[in-house]
Design a protein around this nucleic acid. Structure first.
Length: 388
DNA sequence: TGCAATT
């Protein structure tokens, strides 16, 4: 067995293999995030202009108002446990809820995290807003107190001038009330506005006034009138979308799925040479049962693949691990190992990822990565319990 | 050169 994973890594790095541009993009995105902190840049597949509208400050009133957060744009496959694990890395959580479709049980891509301490809620916004997870960039903001008056306050706006920016859209609608979020949908290929957007107001009555005031009107300088109406309820849509999805070809959901899948297959071949493993994209497992040969491989830990991360700084925390590994795929858990007395990181940590191929790309890409003034060493976890 | 577990 001559081929090892580090050879895959060197292939990735050397550019002699075609996945280089992809992993390079992931690293570039990650570096932006690690060096610049949270941001509000665009959000994956569905494409969307920036959305930094709401909630730098907690809403008034209620006991929960300074501790309760809403988290938007979560990856579809993220579970409530993973949400809790991610936000639990900041501070003690009082409660945590991932919102699911009532019928299908599918995640609606958002949830709530209520901390015990207001300062942890603030810290979570500062450190986790803008975190990239898979193809998403999550948004973390204070939740507004739940009430009937804030429901159904989302508007769908079409016929917008292609030149209109999100800021201009907000300016047009801000006269009717407090805007919670806004967005303009962009063409996935050209990045140009599709002339369609959404405005969510704080209260339904504000949205109603905006319809009365703007539906059928021409924005300043525009030649055509715009249409303003209540947006479809997304929870109805998602179960429909899910059903139709089953009967349709995958379509173009985000940039380059075919290319990525092709890359995965090529990666598969390399990994197969290295470890004799086939990933979930491989056609090999005819009976759908994972080969027992995989059971003794490094890192394989029941559910998912455990990754050892060495040379973390004493002040490293879980959020840095989420930031580094999240973009590569499904991460179920991260852990920084600390000294019991000093509570400082002992220099290493662990990350559990669901899929072998994503874990392998993360390792190949992050091993040797410079974090601050340290060079990380990243590999599958081994069993060093009874050292010889 | 280091692979946890006060859940």
């Amino acid at each position: 067995m001559a081929v090892r994973l580090c050879d895959v890594a060197s292939l990735l790095r050397s550019g002699s293999w075609s996945a280089e541009p992809w992993s390079g993009q992931v690293i570039a995105a990650m570096e932006t995030q690690l060096s610049n902190g949270p941001n509000c840049t665009s959000n994956g597949p569905n494409s969307i202009s920036n959305n930094c509208t709401s909630s730098a400050e907690p809403p008034d009133g209620g006991e929960d108002s300074k501790t309760n957060l809403i988290v938007n744009y979560l990856p579809q496959n993220m579970t409530q446990e993973e949400l809790k694990s991610l936000f639990g890395s900041i501070g003690e959580i009082e409660s945590c809820k991932l919102v699911r479709d009532k019928i299908t049980g599918q995640s609606l891509g958002y949830g709530f995290v209520n901390y015990v301490e207001p300062k942890d809620a603030e810290k979570a916004i500062n450190t986790l807003n803008g975190l990239r997870l898979q193809t998403k960039t999550i948004k973390v903001s204070y939740a507004r107190p739940s009430s009937a008056s804030i429901r159904d306050a989302n508007l769908y706006v079409s016929g917008l001038p292609k030149t209109m920016t999100q800021k201009e859209l907000e300016q047009l609608f801000s006269q009717y009330g407090r805007i919670i979020t806004s967005r303009i949908l962009l063409d996935q290929v050209t990045g140009v506005s599709r002339g369609v957007g959404f405005i969510r107001f704080d209260r339904r009555v504000e949205a109603e006034e905006a319809i009365k005031g703007q539906n059928g009107q021409k924005p300043p300088g525009a030649t055509e009138p715009i249409t303003v109406k209540f947006a479809n309820n997304p929870s109805q849509k998602s179960s429909q979308a899910l059903l139709s999805h089953l009967y349709q070809s995958p379509g173009r959901r985000y940039p380059g799925p075919l290319a990525q899948q092709a890359q995965r297959f090529r990666l598969d071949n390399l990994l197969n040479m290295a470890y004799g493993v086939k990933s979930r994209f491989s056609p090999v497992n005819i009976d759908g049962v994972t080969s027992l040969a995989g059971m003794n491989l490094p890192g394989h830990a029941g559910a998912g693949w455990c990754i050892f991360v060495y040379n973390l700084a004493p002040d490293a925390d879980e959020s840095v691990l989420w930031q580094m590994f999240g973009p590569f795929g499904a991460v179920t858990n991260v852990k920084v190992i600390r000294d019991f007395n000093t509570n400082k990181c002992k220099g290493f940590g662990f990350v559990t990822m669901t899929n072998y191929d994503e874990a392998a790309v993360a390792i190949a890409s992050l091993n040797g990565y410079r974090l601050g003034d340290r060079v990380l060493q990243v590999s599958f976890k081994t069993n060093k319990t009874h050292k010889a």
